[in-house]
Design a protein around this nucleic acid. Structure first.
Length: 1004
RNA sequence: GCGCGCUUAGCUCAGCGGUAGAGCAUCAGUAUCACACACUGGGGGUCACAGGUUCAAAUCCUGUAGCGCGCACCA
């Protein structure tokens, strides 16, 4: 530090060192390193996203872990990247293109053109968040940055799809799915948020019909509904078969109003007779339960709401084209006019909303692709039952991670680690542990995952399709022969294609027909397929990533690729290994998989974490990470979620510009308790800034004392303050290291704050000024040596939290000079993490309880003395005289320190001092401290002060005595506690006596 | 409905069986030669409520209330 500004200026410093780290390749992970591995994969942010406070919290934690691991001597890989975020990105680009007038709907452009625009958008905006992470100081290995749509990554996604398809875990089916009419795509169950919504319960009257199909006057069935617009698609009214009120009606028909359609009354157990009227309208195409009933009763499906959320032609002339919300009003109006609306009442119920576009979800019957989750058992067992405790083996022992054969065994699908036996600990830990319950609950109630999305931006499903029509004459196999012909042709690619032939009408898988013996031309059309139609349609699906096969299918056979893309999470669930070069057994995979820690939010525990665990076991044969740390959610200081519309989400980059990245990191970490939401306040960052400034100035103070870095500490010259400080440092090292092991980051920051500010700056530095000002040169040098020792340790303790300023000071103070090149010489990043002071060190330097006691007694005296000054209204800058009547001899150093800290011009130590009547005094462990006041002594004021003190002493004495007078307390309490209470009683009693004496001396 | 978490100083939180703590805020004072992004001193809490266990409960158990979250869901 050639030039030392009075206040720390972070901007230039941060930029300088970040560039230095990049230039020196400090973040690059070496798979060939002999060091034990430590790895994290970043939760990939949305490629077009911007840094927000959630990212700051999340990535600061990861950076802290990575930097700590480097100092622990680990070979660290923090693997960064971005996610293509299908729906979000497509929506953003569509909006932008509409705004620019490029298109009205993406159909105007067509798939290819539209995707060109998305890629262009990605190129333009895709790097922003990465640059922002660099501003935060993130030590990611940027040479390995990945994107979920990279060609290599896409190949992984496709390979995984093919494998799961081959296993029969991926299938296509016509199902009632969660449809987002705004994004016009299917969603998974997880993407639906149930939100309490105020609505109405409408009671509709459906006229009953006689045998001739004529309405019976004044006879109605009453159905209740929250969605009257769906009545246009009703196909039945259902009652419970045991409901005696309605049994005689079952089998009769009612008139569906507005549609003038006759629909049956059916009996189904689903209906709860106690709810409403006990009659349920059945809308097979627009309600999952109704769909199930319709299947049981072979009811037709009438689709009245289209994929765009507007009423279809089937809804009838007056309604077609209306938005579903509008249609609701119009239907109700019509029914009311017809006198068929009995009543309606307010009704609060839960309605599923799209997590993406926030519109109400529409149950929608459509062909979708589903995944039956793989490796569920292993994925469940590896976490469930995880006990409270420290992190799971964070070491990643070098012998196992560099052992190729064992990895290959695991990768080839050997028994997962979780099956190692009942006594084995779960190999994965959640922190905080309670999230494992949420995880376990979800894992045991898995429903198949709808993985297809009706979007263009994403990984396109690698399935090619063709529909064939086969005449219904079993002896005519001419068309059936096609299967064999095609399959024979595809035989050339047999390792690379999976063929599946589905009977269109029934959805039944009937092929492939190729058998081991050869072609099975004798296609068996069973009765179900024979029934009904003169011809049969078959869907032929070929799943492949083989380019020649695709070429053949498309060019020779007229196949077309499935238009859907995959759910974004279907690519991100492969993130931990797809980013490391899988399916090749790369050195990176061998060294760094499984990863050590994952840091993410509990809101994506199902979306991402659980699925990654399953994918890890399925494709790597091993868990993807050993520890998962769940952060809280960042809220504003009023506890509200941060959102753009509220405008309560500060821009982290502005905060960095204003306070520095280190300040933002420290402030955020300090206010982030384990497992709870973070109430963020800019004040926290200000505090971080102040902290950095304090650190800067403490070093500046040391710098101004001059002299070289003092390496050698002379134990003979150590003062009680030196020893105290070394012990406090030792305590902090232990505390912070433990906090790290348990992921208690805010505890670590609190300890750092305390040891540096309250202990080092407030006490040690101030006390050290005594020898610096008046000590011998040897004493002065020794003090500097202790200062350097403590500061060089503290800089290292701070480094994971405050990477930039610690690097600047590490070099500026010259602490790097003595270190080996690779262990702190070049950068503090690789300086060894401080170890607790061992017993030899303590013995050699005389760090014992006695030194501690003296220093603490001095602090007590100083506080009491200052208090006395204040009570007597002596200005802080006025130097006064103090006299100590000591209980034990006082060392000259201690006397000098007391004089300095009390701002005394004279500090006498006089064992025989007799304070004149009424001289203010306090009683402390070191003795009796007198404050001789010039001029008049205000006896009344002194009496009042002493009386107050006496009251306090009386109260404390009484409190302890009450306990000690309890016979069962004395009898049952552990000896140490008893002793402690007795000691406390004696101290308070002694103090009380001294105060009483002083009061008596004042006279009356 | 089921499950989870929280309730301690004005605010944010720590403490999780043996003298109620921190930071911020507040009040009073201080330009003292590391730092006013600072220093010094002070005030402030019957630890949500009610029972129970214990010599001893903020801390353990049971229940209640309030707040928050997740899952499920009958029109």
């Amino acid at each position: 530090m050639s030039e030392i500004p009075k206040a720390y200026e972070p901007q230039a410093v941060e930029e300088k060192w970040y560039q230095f780290w990049l230039d020196q390749k400090c973040f690059v992970a070496n798979p060939a390193s002999p060091k034990p591995a430590y790895s994290i994969v970043i939760p990939p942010p949305n490629v077009t996203g911007m840094l927000h406070m959630g990212h700051v919290l999340n990535n600061t934690i990861q950076d802290i872990l990575a930097r700590k691991a480097r100092m622990d001597g680990k070979e660290v890989l923090w693997l960064p990247g971005t996610d293509h975020a299908g729906i979000a990105t497509q929506a953003v680009v569509e909006k932008a293109l509409r705004k620019q007038g490029v298109m009205k709907h993406r159909d105007d452009l067509g798939r290819e053109k539209f995707l060109e625009h998305v890629w262009a958008w990605k190129e333009k905006h895709g790097g922003i968040i990465i640059q922002q992470l660099k501003k935060l100081g993130c030590s990611c290995d940027w040479t390995r940055e990945r994107f979920t749509m990279d060609p290599d990554y896409s190949r992984c996604v496709q390979k995984v799809f093919v494998e799961l398809y081959k296993k029969g875990l991926i299938y296509r089916g016509k199902r009632m799915v969660n449809w987002d009419p705004a994004a016009r795509t299917a969603l998974s169950d997880e993407e639906v948020e149930m939100t309490e919504t105020k609505g109405h319960l409408w009671h509709l009257k459906y006229p009953m019909l006689d045998d001739a199909g004529q309405p019976i006057p004044d006879q109605f069935v009453i159905v209740a509904t929250t969605r009257p617009e769906t009545m246009l698609g009703d196909e039945a009214v259902a009652v419970n078969p045991k409901d005696e009120r309605y049994t005689k009606l079952v089998g009769t028909k009612v008139l569906l109003p507005l549609q003038n359609k006759h629909i049956p009354i059916i009996a189904d157990d689903f209906v709860d007779p106690k709810f409403g009227t006990g009659c349920v309208k059945v809308t097979p195409a627009h309600d999952p339960n109704d769909y199930a009933m319709a299947t049981r009763h072979s009811l037709p499906l009438t689709v009245v709401i289209g994929p765009d959320g507007k009423m279809t032609g089937e809804a009838g002339g007056g309604f077609a084209g209306l938005d579903r919300a509008e249609a609701r009003k119009v239907v109700v109006e019509h029914l009311e006019k017809l006198g068929l609306l009995l009543k309606f009442e307010d009704y609060v119920h839960n309605v599923g909303h799209s997590q993406r576009s926030h519109v109400p979800i529409e149950p929608y019957l459509s062909e979708q692709w589903f995944l039956k989750y793989p490796s569920v058992e292993a994925a469940t067992a590896c976490v469930v039952g995880s006990a409270r405790g420290p992190r799971a083996d964070s070491g990643g022992p070098p012998e196992s991670s560099s052992d190729q054969s064992s990895l290959e065994e695991r990768a080839s699908g050997g028994p997962p680690a979780a099956a190692a036996g009942p006594a084995a600990l779960p190999p994965m830990r959640f922190h905080p542990e309670r999230w494992s319950k949420t995880y376990a609950h979800w894992m045991t109630n898995l429903r198949d995952w709808c993985i297809s999305r009706q979007l263009w931006w994403g990984h396109r499903i690698p399935v090619w399709h063709k529909r064939l029509t086969v005449p219904n004459r079993p002896e005519n196999h001419s068309k059936v022969w096609w299967f064999s012909e095609t399959e024979r042709a595809l035989d050339e690619y047999r390792n690379n294609v999976v063929v599946r032939i589905v009977h269109t009408a029934s959805g039944r898988i009937v092929g492939p027909f190729k058998t081991k013996e050869g072609m099975d031309n004798n296609l068996e059309l069973n009765e179900e397929m024979d029934a009904g139609k003169p011809e049969h349609e078959f869907d032929v699906f070929v799943c492949t990533v083989d380019e020649p096969a695709v070429k053949y299918l498309v060019e020779e056979e007229g196949f077309t690729q499935d238009p859907d893309v995959l759910d974004t999470w279907f690519s991100s669930w492969l993130w931990p290994f797809a980013t490391m070069g899988w399916p090749e057994q790369t050195p990176t995979l061998r060294k760094f998989y499984p990863t050590t820690d994952l840091v993410t939010g509990p809101d994506i525990i199902f979306f991402w974490v659980a699925r990654m665990i399953m994918a890890g076991y399925e494709f790597m044969g091993d868990l993807p990470f050993r520890n998962v740390y769940f952060t809280g959610i960042i809220r504003d200081k009023l506890g509200r979620k941060m959102s753009k519309s509220l405008g309560n989400s500060p821009d982290p980059l502005e905060l960095i510009a204003k306070y520095g990245a280190d300040a933002l990191r420290f402030g955020t970490m300090r206010s982030a308790p384990l497992g709870q939401d973070v109430l963020f306040d800019e004040k926290d960052v200000e505090l971080g800034r102040n902290f950095c400034n304090k650190l800067w100035n403490a070093c500046r103070f040391r710098q101004m004392q001059g002299g070289e870095v003092q390496g050698e500490i002379n134990s003979a010259l150590l003062t009680s303050d030196d020893k105290w400080m070394l012990l406090r440092l030792d305590a902090a090292i232990r505390e912070i290291s433990t906090a790290f092991a348990e992921y208690r980051f805010n505890e670590a920051t609190q300890a750092l704050y305390r040891v540096f500010w309250s202990e080092f700056c407030d006490w040690y530095l101030e006390a050290a000024k005594a020898p610096m000002q008046s000590g011998t040169s040897a004493q002065k040098a020794n003090t500097l040596a202790v200062l350097d020792f403590v500061l060089s340790h503290m800089l290292r303790l701070f480094h994971p939290f405050l990477p930039h300023i610690t690097e600047e000071l590490w070099h500026g103070m010259g602490y790097s000079a003595d270190m080996p090149e690779k262990q702190g010489g070049k950068t503090i990043m690789f300086a060894p993490w401080p170890k607790p002071l061992d017993q030899d060190f303590r013995d050699h330097y005389g760090l014992n309880d006695r030194a501690l006691a003296i220093a603490e007694a001095k602090q007590e005296l100083v506080i009491q003395g200052r208090n006395l000054r204040r009570e007597k209204n002596i200005p802080a800058n006025k130097r006064v005289k103090f006299i100590l009547k000591p209980a034990d001899p006082v060392a000259p150093h201690d006397q000098a320190v007391l004089q300095l800290l009390l701002n005394a011009d004279v500090f006498d130590v006089d064992p025989y001092f007799q304070g004149p009547k009424g001289m203010p005094s306090v009683h402390v462990k070191l003795g009796e401290l007198f404050l001789p006041l010039e001029g008049l002594i205000d006896a009344a004021a002194e009496r009042a002060r002493l009386t107050k003190e006496l009251e306090k002493a009386n109260a404390e004495t009484a409190k302890v005595e009450q306990k000690l007078n309890n016979p069962s307390f004395v009898q049952k309490v552990p000896p140490a506690v008893l002793e402690e209470h007795q000691k406390r009683r004696a101290e308070w009693q002694a103090k009380r006596e001294l105060i009483q004496k002083a009061l008596a001396a004042l006279g009356s």
